[in-house]
Structures are given as structure tokens and as C-alpha cells.
Amino acid sequence: MRIRADRDVCIGAGNCVLAAENVFDQDDDAIVVVLQETPDGADAEAARNAVGSCPSGALSIEET
């Protein structure tokens, strides 16, 4: 899997950081930063939950 984040769409709610701290962070303006584009194992599972809980639709997963 590959994580895509659209920083123009992100509203900085931080749900992704809480759901998958190893995969996502926020910059100083709260906009999402992807730490791992291709997480695996438990991080991949957490990343899926993060994508599901993102309120703005900024995150997507590309299955590779």
C-alpha cells in the first residue's frame, strides 16, 4: 500500500496522528505530513484506520 495525502484538502484535525502516530505527523500549521508512505504490519493497519477517520478526505490509500 501507498499513502497519499492532499495537503490542500487537509483541515488539520489530527485524527490521523492519533490513529497512526508512526505514519502521520502535522507541521506547524497542523497540515498533515506523511512519515511513512508505505507502512506495513501494525502501522499499515493503523494507517487504514487513520484514512477512515480523516474528516476532510485528504488521505487515500493506493494498493500496490
Binding site: I11, A13, G14, N15, L18, A19, N49, G52, S53, P55, S56, G57
Partner: peptide, 23 residues
């Protein structure tokens, strides 16, 4: 149960700004 993607903080661009604080 595992945390669910509920809508109690709303959804979309108006999703609660204070959610991290409230949590």
C-alpha cells in the same frame, strides 16, 4: 471496542477544531 470513525466531532471541513484538546 476499537476506536471507531464516529461523527460525534462532526465530519468534513467543520470537524471539531478542539477535538485534540477535548480528547
Amino acid at each position: 471496542r476499537a476506536a471507531s470513525p464516529h461523527v460525534a466531532f462532526g465530519h468534513g471541513v467543520h470537524h471539531c477544531l478542539g477535538a485534540p484538546l477535548a480528547r
